[in-house]
């Protein structure tokens, strides 16, 4: 499993820019960024090459950041690839909190999933024929 950086952001002009600048200044490179937004606030989820450094840099700058364990799964690049994986969770009655995708430098599609029951989830991913990406493949 990998560490995702989650940041609570108020819906205020320039907050996302300030977040990215803080990471840039700390020499952290992002693989993926997704923002879930509500009327009042947003939650930014980030996959980066150095999550621990990113976490530290953000908290130092006064951001409300935390680290969350998520699965990064390599998805074959053809129609229905992700559907097969999600159906496997569905069949096992396992709930996926959220998911989003990004591509690696090597052109692989990666899906990020938050699932609370780690052991069960890992088993489902593997038996459905998918590969869980290790931290070493993403971290600098």
């Amino acid at each position: 499993m990998i560490d995702q950086i989650t940041v609570f952001l108020e819906n205020e002009k320039g907050r996302l820019a300030a977040l990215c600048r803080a990471l840039g200044d700390a020499d952290v490179s992002m693989h993926a960024l997704t923002v879930a937004d509500t009327a009042q606030y947003g939650v930014a989820r980030i996959i980066a090459d150095t999550p621990a450094k990113a976490y530290e840099a953000l908290n130092e700058k006064g951001f409300r950041a935390s680290l969350t364990k998520v699965f990064a799964v390599e998805i074959p690049d053809h129609a229905g690839g992700l559907a097969t994986l999600l159906e496997a969770f569905d069949a096992a009655g396992v709930n996926v909190e959220y998911a989003y995708c990004f591509a690696t430098e090597g052109g692989k599609a990666v899906d990020v999933l938050r699932i609370d029951n780690h052991e069960v989830a890992e088993g489902i991913i593997t038996s459905a024929g998918f590969r869980v990406i290790r931290p070493t493949e993403l971290y600098a």
């Binding site: 609570f8 879930a36 509500t38 939650v43 935390s66 969350t68 938050r114």
Partner: peptide
């Protein structure tokens, strides 16, 4: 833990 919006 604010990672899940439903908790907030």
């Amino acid at each position: 833990d604010f990672d899940e919006i439903r908790r907030i």
